[in-house]
Simulated assay, not measured.
Amino acid sequence: MSWARKAPIGHAWGVSEHTTSTALQLRPPAHRVSRRAIGYWTVTASILWIILIGVQTLIVVTSDDAPSFLTVTLVLSCVLGPLHLIVMPQWRYRVHRWEVTGEAVYTQSGWLKQEWRIAPVSRIQTVDIERDPFEQLFGLAKITVTTASAAGPLRISGLAHDRALALADELTKTTQAVRGDAT
């Protein structure tokens, strides 16, 4: 399976004009998220590592008799933290993909645990855009597509904000044009 395939020519905001059979097939989505997502994932993960290493350091330094396991976990955190910050964002960028066709929304996400999802457009109930403070700082947004599926909503994280707005608008128009009760 090739991960380097080109995005199909289609709508400028990611809606592809694929010819598909009546059965939707799970396949790698065509579009990557914004490259700015790498920085976003790095910053949000580094905050957690800084807090963890800071608390461990504070306990080891201020304790008269720090437990030896805490010194070991501090050393491990100092090794694993930077390694995680180097590997995880790049890996996630290579995995996270999305695509919208006239028939379905395709998503692929994760890094250690990866998830592929497909939702027929006729099953879409709502389309939401979210931006946490760090996403705003990086000019990113995430789209949540709620369907009638028991598996829960599909999420496309790491989109450029303007692309997310246009994609949400396009999904809304496509959903309204498709007959069905979204259940």
Rank of each mutant, 00 (worst) to 15 (best):
R117T: 08
C78M: 15
Y93F: 14
L52C: 11
I53P: 07
P89I: 00
L112G: 03
E99N: 13
P89H: 00
E99V: 14
P82N: 04
E99F: 13
L74K: 05
H96N: 13
V55C: 05
W91Y: 13
Y106F: 15
G110D: 09
R117C: 05
Q114A: 06
T42K: 07
V100L: 03
V100G: 09
R97M: 02
S63A: 15
E115I: 11
I59A: 03
Q108C: 12
T107W: 05
L52H: 05
V100D: 06
V43F: 06
V79E: 07
L80S: 06
G39I: 04
W41R: 11
L58K: 07
V55Q: 06
Y93K: 06
K113F: 15
T44P: 00
Q114G: 07
L70R: 08
T101C: 01
I86M: 15
V95H: 08
G110A: 03
E99G: 15
D64C: 01
I47A: 12
V55K: 00
G54I: 04
W98G: 05
S77A: 15
E115P: 05
V72R: 12
Y106D: 02
Q114W: 01
V100I: 12
T71C: 09
M88C: 13
V72P: 04
W111Y: 13
Q90E: 09
S77Y: 00
I50G: 09
H84Y: 12
F69Y: 13
L48E: 12
T73G: 02
V72F: 11
L76R: 08
L112Q: 07
W41S: 06
I86C: 14
W91A: 12
E99H: 10
Q114H: 05
L83F: 13
G39P: 07
V55L: 15
Y93C: 08
T42F: 15
T73I: 09
A45I: 04
I86R: 12
L112W: 07
Q108P: 04
V79M: 11
D64T: 08
S77I: 00
T62D: 09
T71R: 15
K113V: 15
T107Q: 05
V87N: 07
H84L: 05
Q56V: 06
G81R: 09
S68M: 12
I47E: 06
T73D: 01
L48K: 14
R94Q: 10
L48Y: 10
Q56T: 09
G39Q: 11
A66Y: 01
A45P: 04
G102L: 03
E99T: 11
T71E: 15
S68W: 09
Y106Q: 08
C78F: 08
S46D: 08
M88V: 12
